[in-house]
Design a protein around this nucleic acid. Structure first.
Lengths: 145, 145
DNA sequence: TATTGTTATACTCTATAACTATA
DNA sequence: TATAGTTATAGAGTATAACAATA
């Protein structure tokens, strides 16, 4: 068995990437906060809406948002009160409530997503080619175990 | 003047990147929470510590952490109580307090950073070459106005 | 017994406003 | 008059635990 304590990959580069991601995500969060305000949504409400490109049980939404399921209740309550989302009891398992966008919810989600992406900080300054390269790198990074 | 409503860059790709970043950052946050626990630090305390690679006025630290200055007081209080940082009044402007890592603080910061980077989720699965490519893309993205 | 969603509750993080000391 | 940091306080976001309905 070879004696190799460190991987050839340098922690130095990893550190630079983490710092860059930290900065990028900071800018994106600020951008999100400015944008959702115009839509009269809280950031959690907006993130929930963005996840609902397909019907999703409450619990799955919680997993996607990385928060406890008890939080989702309140978030969805407000989205439902505004007529953006419906809770539909699952026919196969009646404990489950599937979240489905209403027509207005679908429209609002599309507008929100477009606003967020159209001037996504930093990303818009990359060329189309660079964007594809970035996408492919991130895909490869996340694909591995 | 040419009639061009959309940029050639596709919102489609931008959207994919945002989704990938969302997933990546989620994993990194979970990783951060697991790791800082072992160091008996809260995530904000850990992030503050990580920023202090050089002396920094309270207010600048707040800007880096993207939070109000009033929060930093409590975070630094606890780090100082543990003897990890010192508040040093600036000689040129006595309103300013510069945060400086103590010797134990420097040691702990290095250990924390190493732990975080050594098994940074997703990033460690990239080859050294891919890591450099990712770093360069992110640098370019953030450099632009 | 285990799981989904809800409620009630407490805790953490964060921002706002008023204060002090310096400038 | 303006700025750096602190304090007190309130609000948002989150998690935990107990519960009802269903599996």
């Amino acid at each position: 068995m070879a004696i190799r304590v460190n991987k050839p990959r340098s922690l130095e580069t990893t550190g630079e990437i983490v710092d860059l991601l930290f900065e990028l995500v900071g800018r994106m969060r600020a951008h999100l906060e400015r944008t959702v305000e115009r839509f009269d949504l809280s950031p959690p409400q907006a993130l929930a809406l963005l996840q609902l490109d397909r019907p999703l049980p409450m619990r799955h939404l919680a997993q996607h948002l990385r928060c406890d399921a008890s939080n989702v209740t309140g978030i969805v309550d407000r989205l439902e009160a505004r007529g953006l989302v419906e809770r539909r009891v699952d026919r196969a398992d009646r404990r489950i409530k599937n979240l489905v966008l209403t027509r207005p919810g679908t429209v609002l989600r599309a507008r929100l997503r477009r606003s967020l992406l159209q001037d996504a900080p930093a990303l818009t300054s990359l060329s189309a080619k660079d964007q594809r390269a970035l996408r492919d790198l991130l895909t490869r990074a996340l694909a591995a175990p």
